[in-house]
Design a protein around this nucleic acid. Sequence first.
DNA 1: CTGCTGCCTGACAACGCTTGCACGCTAGAA
DNA 2: TTCTAGCGTGCAAGCGTTGTCAGGCAGCAG
Lengths: 339, 339
Amino acid sequence: MADVAERAGVSVSTVSRTLRGLSTVSDEARERVEAAARELSFVISRQASSLVTGKTGTVAVLAPTLGSWFVGQVLRGLSEVLRDAGLDLMVYSVADLAERAAFFDRLPARRNADALLVVSFDLTEAEFARLDGLGVPVVYVSQHAPGRASVYVEDVAAARAGTRYLRGLGHRRIAYVRASPDSGFTCSSRTRLFGYREALAEAGLPYDEDLVVATSRGRRETSKAVGRLLCLADPPTAVFAETDEIAMEVLWVLRASGIDVPGRISVLGFDDHDHAEWLDLTTIAQPAVEVGRAAGSLAHTLIDDPATDPARHVVLPTCLIPRGTTGPALFQEPDAGEA
Amino acid sequence: MADVAERAGVSVSTVSRTLRGLSTVSDEARERVEAAARELSFVISRQASSLVTGKTGTVAVLAPTLGSWFVGQVLRGLSEVLRDAGLDLMVYSVADLAERAAFFDRLPARRNADALLVVSFDLTEAEFARLDGLGVPVVYVSQHAPGRASVYVEDVAAARAGTRYLRGLGHRRIAYVRASPDSGFTCSSRTRLFGYREALAEAGLPYDEDLVVATSRGRRETSKAVGRLLCLADPPTAVFAETDEIAMEVLWVLRASGIDVPGRISVLGFDDHDHAEWLDLTTIAQPAVEVGRAAGSLAHTLIDDPATDPARHVVLPTCLIPRGTTGPALFQEPDAGEA
DNA sequence: CTGCTGCCTGACAACGCTTGCACGCTAGAA
DNA sequence: TTCTAGCGTGCAAGCGTTGTCAGGCAGCAG
């Protein structure tokens, strides 16, 4: 910066003022500084300015995994908004419980970011407390954190609606396939399961634990989960999958074993993944990119304007998209006519 | 830090030395410092230390888009390695040419990261020059950058092999569907097209520009691209798609219009996307997560050990996985027996 | 001509950490 | 006993910015 100052024939103060766009600089000086900065291809060091301002110009996001469709979409929306706001995006992912513990132990974001976004984590009370005491705004993404800033879709209501829809098609035995709890990605898992249970109760159907199975990424696990459902004495006629990615795996296992979808089993997903349309998968659409955008701008607001309500909520809509993987239950019992 | 020092009854120097694990601290002092730091939940400010050391502890990655399958997988591998190395991961994405120009103009990574990873960018000479003068190591990921550190698969050879495979099935009219050049994701696009052309030449087949079409994300664009192929006077009997994501869209368009795959048209993809197996898509597999890991550890090496060959290359293997979307060309011409 | 008001500008003290240097101490060699 | 070596520690000088403060210089009214 001193070099730029010398070249422009001014002091470092003036360079600093110019480069930050403060108005108290004469046009002439401004011009000379900008030229000098360009010639020396000078950019200000974030580390140095953040040392004095206390702002890092960075937002950190903690996700259970990168590489899942949902997280990818959220990141897309997020980076778009943050770029416009001049903020950098730092990503942390924790794949398993050990890493998770390590993250909360070290909490590297503590002083290295102006805000932290937490994507779909089922946090313990201790972890919540740790984040509350972090000293920077935390935005909970894709999860409803009471009393804290969050951006989410109404998972419970959406899952209830999805289950009702299946019920309306005459299904009485509806399975729920969730992501394995050890994946860490269990927040929406829990809430959606809750909506599913509510809808069952509403329809007077029993909650049967045998109908709730978990799977983790990969064909083998899903085959096992589906297998468990198929060999029940009273197997399901419909499957509600926590995400489209799981639904697609289920679909594949069912088709590979010659089971007609939706003839014998209906499949309902959640997300409206890019591929859902190609596969004609009935699903509950959520605006994933928009979730990222909203989270980004909420974080931006929280950073710039400390007077903002720290418990602000943004709720985004979902909608069920009926497609070809769901159909009427074939073997309706006499009382199913209520649908 | 002064607080910690006071509480532990030592100087800040000793606190600094302790917290960085230097050995020249007595066990007794170390213990007291660690206790004090824990009680005050103190963490070192990266900004401040990087101001002194010149190291930021951060690696930046520039990608054409987040949210594509390939980038997601690379990020997964990357974050895994970087986490172990104690480095943070910062992501920048540029969606269009304007943003791209802005990025290279401002080059925010300049002093804010210890290394920059560039994922699959078809860079201009000017951009290469700009990055060369950046002052931090740059690793080119999923692209071969001559004389510069890069991690990639042999796209040309793989595409050649894939095209040969189709040729071996008797196909003479092989289309190539690429990502739209304006998406920025054009590096592998170009190299794979090159391999395709080589294989055609090798087989004595003409390169027909009508058989090369571009598409961008979304059903509509792909329908148009496939439509252009189908209404050719001499339409293709096989399609080589630049990525599995494109291949899947092509597959979907073909099936939706009642065209038998592989009966009338064979489809070959590239990536071995998670869904490729479910869709029984023949594809050229590349180890995307491994690419990310290799890139991460190369960056790590380059940062820590300046003596490393700055033009180090890591080449990872690909392999063709024959599945159900490719089959023999039906209407073989007399001389097709050579296959 | 003097005094006052504004507008720009430069000097300088932080910000929180690292690191070279010097100091004091103990221990073993001479 | 004196000298040297080595270890553990503290001091203080930065690292590259920002923000405060005072000062110089016009311009204008008195």
